[in-house]
Design a protein around this nucleic acid. Structure first.
Lengths: 332, 332
DNA sequence: TAGATTGGTGTAAGCGCTTTCATTTTTAAC
DNA sequence: GTTAAAAATGAAAGCGCTTACACCAATCTA
């Protein structure tokens, strides 16, 4: 592999000059620039990223810590982040935290050790204090799916309360009055927020919240399936289930089907997140949009500007959910 | 940040000795080792990965090139790869090739420029010749979902012909004789193989392949949906559809539902890949298993041994698909 | 025309490690 | 107690690049 030295010899200039044309960051005469470009081309020269990083104290890598690398939720976000970063000739190092304090911490250390220039982080178990402290180090940081007031201009998140509210208000408007709720894990902020939105809408319609009709799931199909069994076995009547995400809604619907219940004939469903799959099941799932791709884009752009840009980025916006009306809710 | 130099001063030893204890790769007396460890602890020393890489000509990163970063297929594979690599204190750099020659080439260059120590590659558009040539460079390479005879010991792939065969044989055994097939994109090898398996089973049962009942999709829900519309509109009768993957099967089932056709009452379906979602729709999809996680594991382990291990890895096995019988096929 | 700019280029000192080779210390053998 | 072999350590030369600084020539300014 040709080095910058080889190029400088062939072009008849100094190392420094070659470096300048590679980085395009200082005055070089057109004539010299051409000589260098010709030499680079002739040698098939590729800058050694690692040497660049060491010398410049920049790794050109951004650490991305998410709960999991698979699943319908993080996939699109990662895709967007990768695309934006690669477009800027940076790269992402993805790590999975699995919603567990120890694993999240280990993943953070891993990324920090890797010399990431900045971090995009979606963690649940790490404490606010830790994140605030981390944000004060010189490594830029942006938080996804989390709202910490002290870090508000670097939190990319959805208004989950509003989402829960929209979903619930919609079914109430359709005439349902006996609602059940399949919640996400209570330790997750977004899950709590979605529940808050649910209760807010109930309040607004003067319906009392019934804890017996609120069941906690794991955000996966299986959890929704089991929660639905509980709900059905509890003996309390209801005509509609609001689910804290689409995956649980799918599991819950499967449970109904198994018992011969019609959806939405007997029971109506609203989901949350608008993941691709449930658009293709019958009935098509009415749900709440979650612009995760836009959030990934926002996070990556913010980080690029903050870390490598000349002008600092503006504060990140709070993303707004919207109702996506399909076929899983019956009008009463 | 403390450097190796700081540690050496505090411990009263030379740089070289500190490096030895950090890498644990040469004889160091217990006494010295302890002094160094104490000094490292006291200073909170963390080796600078980038400097290590430059000096040792090892980046400790493995490039992973897949078609896409999202979707039910690659997610689990990436998760597995990340877990294995991180366990070995290496990291993956993921890049998406989008099944397009230009983008795949660009992604390859990107990863190569990044100084990856090895590559795990799932590409469709890049030619066999290119890959063979690449494999002759000093960067170890393993191919996923592809079979190149010259590189057979480093191809991690599923026996897709067998999978297509199993799916088809099963429905034939259930008494179906008029089958349709929704294929994957013909430019993809695995799609062609699955179709080959389908035809093989038809042959075996003495049923003539009918091109009118074979429709190409895009491996996504939408493609399956549209292919199904075609099939239904073609006017040729059939009782069962073999789909080249689960996503298309889901889309196709949605198309049937929309027309009021019962599944499996009117039309039976088999999928392929066993992705999580269709287990939770009604009817539960009968499909062919695809051990993508095991394949990710195999690929990552192979690469670790090949690149950093003392003993070279053995040849990669061909993974075998299995039928997963659920509820979407009616016995005639 | 002297002096001050400015643009273009080169020199060389690192960045924080690894690793070869030489040197010193310890151990074992007699 | 010698002496040779083995074990432990240190000195120093890079790895391929960036960048502060120095330098020289060309261009202005008055």
């Amino acid at each position: 592999m040709a080095t910058i030295y080889d190029v400088s010899i062939l072009a008849g200039v100094s190392l420094a000059t070659v470096s300048r044309v590679v980085n395009n960051n200082a005055k070089v005469s057109d004539k010299t620039r051409k000589k260098v470009h010709d030499a680079m081309e002739q040698l098939g020269y590729r800058p050694n990223n690692i040497a660049q990083s060491l010398a410049s104290n920049r790794s050109n890598s951004i650490g991305v810590l998410v709960s999991q690398l698979d699943g319908p939720y993080y996939g699109p976000m990662m895709r967007q982040i990768e695309a934006v970063l690669r477009g800027a000739n940076k790269h992402a190092i993805f790590a999975a935290g699995h919603s567990d304090a120890e694993q999240e911490q280990e993943a953070m250390d891993f990324l920090l050790n890797r010399g990431c220039d900045a971090l995009i982080v979606d963690v649940e178990a790490l404490s606010d204090e830790y994140l605030v402290k981390l944000s004060q180090s010189k490594t830029p940081l942006v938080l996804i799916n989390r709202h910490i007031e002290a870090l508000r201009d670097r939190c990319v998140h959805l208004d989950n309360v509003q989402g829960g509210y929209l979903a619930t208000r919609y079914v109430l408007e359709q005439g349902h009055t006996r609602l059940a709720f399949i919640a996400g894990p209570h330790e997750k902020l977004d899950a709590r927020d979605r529940l808050t939105g649910y209760r807010k809408a109930l309040d607004e319609f003067g319906i009392k919240f019934d804890a017996k009709l609120c069941c906690e799931g794991d955000y996966h199909e299986e959890g929704g399936y089991q929660a639905m069994q509980h709900l059905l076995d509890a003996g309390r009547p209801f005509t509609c289930v609001v689910c804290a995400n689409d995956q649980m809604a799918s599991g819950a619907i499967a449970a109904c089907m198994e018992r011969g219940l019609k959806v939405p004939g007997d029971i109506s469903f609203v989901g949350f997140d608008n993941i691709p799959f449930p658009r293709y099941i019958s009935p098509k799932l009415t749900t709440i949009s979650n612009p995760i791709e836009a959030m990934g884009l926002a996070a990556a752009s913010w980080i690029l500007r903050q870390t490598y840009g000349e002008t600092p980025p503006s504060a990140t916006p709070v993303f707004q959910p919207e109702l996506i009306e399909r076929e899983s809710v019956r009008k009463l």
